[in-house]
Structure formats: structure tokens, C-alpha cells
């Protein structure tokens, strides 16, 4: 997709710049873009590495198990069909906890395993079951306790209150999840 969008942006920009007489701006801007990509990456080394270090501690303690247990009722509600499949339950809860903590890199491998486990009980191998569909939906909804990456980037950019977005993120993410889950519960009966 980006292999179409990216060159299109550049070609359109250059042609438009010639027509509107902005070509000098574009030329100067090229090097500003490169410079700000470098500057930003340098500040990311500090902020993103910091969060990764903290989250790594969570992964090694029983905090992650405690959180999995707390999720049980939620999983019952979202995935009623797999309540007897212990392995799928465990993998789904680990995936959700990883997502909650903003551990995208950990969430995906466990999530793919959960998909495989659910696929074993799938009677139509080329079609998603309700549980699998709901599971993918949960993963696209990005329910996070702390949006660590965004906060890290905000402080890199010199924000006076980098974490002030947390409350807003909670509201927005819950709204998105509720809409997605409701839509799925309605649509899964018809499609």
C-alpha cells in the first residue's frame, strides 16, 4: 500500500511545487526532513529504551499472571465458545495482558499461537470462527493501560505534560473497543 502512496506523495508534491512556484521551499525542506528524522531518533534512544527496560521487569515477575487472572470474566464474555479450551484461554489472556501493557512485540507471537489453537477446533478451515473474529478485533482495538511509546515521543518533542494524554487515551480506546465489540456481536449473527 505504501509503495503506491509514498511515491505518489512525492511526485504530486514536486509537480505542484513547480506549478505554484514553491520549488525552492521543497528543495530546502528535503534536508530539514532528514535532519529532524535524525534528531528525533537520537532522543528516542533515551525514552523508548527507558520504557522497554521497565516493561521487561513486568514480564519477569508474577505481575503478568495476576493481571491474566483479573481478565478471566472479560474473556468469558468475549469468547463464550472456547470456555472448555484451557490452552486457548491461557494464550488469549497472555495476549491481552501484553497488549494492556503496551508490549506489542510480545503480544503478537502469543496471539498467533492462540489463533492456531482456535483453528484446530474450527470446522471450516478457511473461515474465521466467532471467537477468532472477536480475538482479532480485540487486537486491532489496542487497549492499553499506558501508551508508553506515545508518551516517550511527546517528551522527546519537548512536551511540558507528556503524560497528560493518558485519560483521553483511556476514554478513546474504551469507546473504540465498545463500538467494535458491539458491532461484532451484532454482525456475527448475520455474516
Amino acid at each position: 500500500m505504501l509503495n503506491i502512496i509514498w511515491p505518489a506523495f512525492i511526485v504530486i508534491s514536486i509537480i505542484y511545487a513547480f506549478l505554484s512556484g514553491n520549488i525552492e521551499n521543497v528543495s530546502n525542506g528535503l534536508f530539514d526532513s532528514a535532519k529532524s528524522a535524525v534528531e528525533l531518533t537520537i532522543t528516542f534512544f533515551g525514552t523508548i529504551c527507558l520504557w522497554n527496560g521497565i516493561i521487561e521487569i513486568v514480564k519477569r515477575t508474577t505481575l503478568i499472571d495476576t493481571l491474566s487472572k483479573a481478565l478471566k470474566p472479560v474473556i468469558r464474555f468475549l469468547f463464550p465458545e472456547i470456555k472448555n479450551n484451557k490452552k486457548a484461554n491461557e494464550e488469549i489472556s497472555m495476549n491481552m495482558v501484553s497488549n494492556l501493557l503496551g508490549l506489542g512485540n510480545a503480544a503478537t507471537p502469543i496471539g498467533l499461537k492462540a489463533m492456531e489453537t482456535m483453528q484446530k477446533e474450527n470446522p471450516k478451515k478457511d473461515t474465521l470462527t466467532n471467537s477468532m473474529a472477536m480475538f482479532i478485533l480485540i487486537n486491532t482495538a489496542s487497549i492499553q493501560l499506558i501508551p508508553t511509546n506515545v508518551i516517550a515521543i511527546r517528551s522527546s518533542l519537548g512536551s511540558k505534560e507528556p503524560s497528560s494524554i493518558i485519560l483521553g487515551v483511556w476514554v478513546a480506546t474504551i469507546t473504540a473497543a465498545v463500538v467494535g465489540i458491539t458491532a461484532a456481536k451484532i454482525l456475527m449473527k448475520r455474516f
Partner: peptide
């Protein structure tokens, strides 16, 4: 990852969720 081809309503529901989130 599991060679599924028919995704049913997932894309519609996910994009609705994105729109609501935005």
C-alpha cells in the same frame, strides 16, 4: 498465520471501532 481466507465482518467492525476511537 492460520491460512484463513474468509474474514466475515472483521474488517467492517474494526474500521468502525477505529472511526469511533478517532
Amino acid at each position: 498465520a492460520v491460512k484463513i481466507k474468509k474474514i466475515r465482518f472483521v474488517l467492517v467492525a474494526a474500521l468502525l471501532a477505529d472511526l469511533a476511537g478517532i
